[in-house]
Amino acid sequence: MTEPLSILALNHYLLLSAVLFVIGFIGFLTRRNLIIMFLCTELMFQAAAIAMIAFGAYHGNVQGQVFLIFILTVAAAEAALALALVVMLFRRRPSLDAEKWSELKG
């Protein structure tokens, strides 16, 4: 295994992680296409994954990577279900506009 990450390098990775997360979040908020919204959540997963791996490298163990496996699991499951939902919704109403699905408002 290579030398563990220094705190300065960790800051670099965390910075990148935060930036990617926020970009994904802004995308989630601004885009109206359901599929792109889900893509943005995947982008936020990526940001979390970078932070996870970077912390693992800093601490010099592989638990961050092991945890990423679980994150990947959840992401895959989420993607499968979300896309199934999108297909179902699209069958109901031929549009991917998230604004069209606001009947559940309080």
Partner: peptide, 14 residues
């Protein structure tokens, strides 16, 4: 704010 739009809620949450 209770528009039923997911993104509105996301905005509030963030």
């Amino acid at each position: 704010m209770q528009s039923g739009r997911l993104q509105g809620y996301g905005l509030g949450m963030a």
